[in-house]
Amino acid sequence: MRIRPLLAAGLVATATACSSGTDQATPPATTPSAAPQPEDVSLKIPGIEVKKYRDPGHVEIPTRVAYDQSPPFGGYHDASWAACNGVVYTKAVRNENMVHSLEHGAVWIAYNPETLAGAGVEALAKKVTGVPYMVMSPYPGLDKPISLQSWEHRLKLDDPADPRVDAFIVALKQNEYTHPEPGATCDNPEFDQDDPPPFDPSPAPAGSVPVGS
């Protein structure tokens, strides 16, 4: 088992850095290199959120996980991962499948279709289409126009042109030090990309599987 840096269990930690105080602060000059690093260099990105989860298990449809974050970025998830090799979904996808993709090292770009203009969606889609370990989908009700997720990491933003989008992807996509299953595939021929399991915005009902934080 590879040892990864730990934060206090059960807490969401937001990295802080000196900035102008705006939501579009430019990342520091020490933007991570493309190579995976033996430390969590994403913590240098202003606004990053990190939460550690216990080793997760699997559920199967129709079982739901009582996620403690929206969008979720760790914990129990479906046994089948959402295909995540450069896929831009036009429909919102079930959380449990998307979280499994994160476990494999993918970066998931979620966006609110009500608050992000079409040009912004297109700009983000260009960063995803055909790119291994990248996946994108609408996320109705999202409290920001954009939310980036990797395993145990999240960054919410307003502007698709914010340089922190690229900084997040470079730091965390397939970073073997920050996700549980280095080398796991993002291909899943059995996952229907045109009609994926649907996103359910309702609160998880009684009897749902705890997230495992």
Rank of each mutant, 00 (worst) to 15 (best):
V87S: 12
K52M: 14
V41H: 01
I61N: 11
S19D: 09
A106W: 05
A25K: 03
Y76I: 03
E49Q: 12
A110W: 02
G10L: 10
A34V: 08
I146M: 04
T178M: 03
A204C: 13
A206D: 14
V209F: 08
A34F: 03
V170G: 00
L116H: 06
A167S: 01
R4W: 09
M136A: 13
I3N: 06
Y111T: 07
E103C: 09
I109G: 09
P196D: 08
W108K: 00
A92D: 07
P5L: 06
S150E: 09
V121T: 10
D192L: 13
S80C: 11
L124H: 05
D23M: 11
P38Q: 05
C18F: 14
P201Y: 06
P71Y: 14
E122S: 15
Y133V: 14
D23T: 12
A206H: 04
P38I: 04
Y53K: 08
A83G: 10
F73D: 02
P140I: 14
H153Y: 03
S208T: 04
V131M: 06
D162R: 00
D187G: 12
A106L: 08
V50C: 06
A15E: 15
V99R: 00
G207I: 12
G212M: 02
P32F: 02
E96R: 03
L142S: 05
G10K: 01
A206K: 10
N188I: 14
P140A: 12
K144S: 15
S150D: 08
T63F: 10
H104E: 12
L148Q: 01
A92E: 01
G130R: 02
E103D: 14
A15G: 15
G57N: 07
R94C: 15
E103W: 03
E114D: 15
D55K: 00
G74A: 04
V99Y: 01
N97A: 15
D55S: 08
P32A: 13
T178L: 12
I3Y: 04
E49H: 13
G75A: 07
S202N: 08
C18R: 10
E176V: 14
P28T: 08
A167G: 04
